[in-house]
Simulated assay, not measured.
Amino acid sequence: MSRVAKKPVALVKGVEVTVQGEMINVKGPKGTLSIAKPAGINLKIENDQAQFSTNDPALVPMTGTLRAILANMVKGVSTGFERKLELVGVGYRASMQGKDLNLSLGYSHPILFTPPAGITITTPSQTEIVVSGVDKQLVGEVAAKIRGYRPPEPYKGKGVKYSDETIIRKEAKKA
């Protein structure tokens, strides 16, 4: 069996994992998440740990994937996830208008972004955006969508970048 799948998922205090038919539900202080469990994969919960197992060799890779997803769900409902973005460039600004994010990224018009349900966007300063939520996949998807409005360019580094991202610069053309 997969080495990832053999490792049990530690259930943090205040997090409750239940299996209803083919659905796994995770409930915690920050919210509730659920995922479909494929037939043939077993989930056993005891001593504040969740353990996956299967007898089908074809489902071994899926068991490891499901274990990693459940670990992220447990972390999400207990502490949550966040992604930080930075705006680099003269006149590039971000501000909140109610629940919508207003971006000025050098285009002739401002960009108004409405976050999906379960995602919270804050702007600590005009050049910083913090995307946070319970679902790791959705937080990453929203951050990537915001970054996609003006990805950083390689010559001056202008654009929307992740705070931990390093932009590899190109040398300008020589005369």
Rank of each mutant, 00 (worst) to 15 (best):
R3D: 15
V4D: 13
V4R: 14
K6D: 13
P8Y: 06
V9C: 05
A10Q: 14
V12I: 14
V15M: 03
V15A: 06
E16K: 14
E16H: 15
V17L: 12
V19M: 07
Q20R: 14
Q20G: 11
Q20L: 13
G21L: 07
N25G: 04
N25K: 14
K27H: 12
P29H: 03
G31M: 07
G31V: 06
G31S: 10
I35G: 03
I35V: 14
P38T: 06
I45H: 08
I45A: 05
E46L: 09
N47S: 14
D48G: 10
Q49K: 15
S53P: 09
S53H: 08
A58W: 12
V60Q: 13
V60H: 11
P61M: 03
G64W: 15
R67Q: 13
R67W: 03
R67E: 07
R67V: 06
L70F: 09
L70V: 03
N72F: 07
K75R: 14
T79F: 11
F81T: 05
R83I: 02
K84P: 05
K84R: 15
E86G: 00
L87V: 01
V90N: 13
A94W: 00
Q97N: 13
G98A: 02
G98T: 02
N102V: 09
G106I: 02
I111V: 10
L112A: 00
L112Q: 00
A117E: 11
A117D: 09
T120Y: 00
T122Q: 06
T123N: 05
T123K: 01
T127Y: 05
E128R: 08
I129Y: 06
V130N: 04
V130T: 12
V131G: 00
V131A: 01
V134G: 09
K136V: 11
L138W: 10
G140Y: 01
G140E: 07
E141W: 13
A144K: 13
I146K: 01
R150W: 00
E153H: 08
Y155F: 15
K158F: 13
I168M: 09
K170D: 08
E171Y: 04
A172M: 12
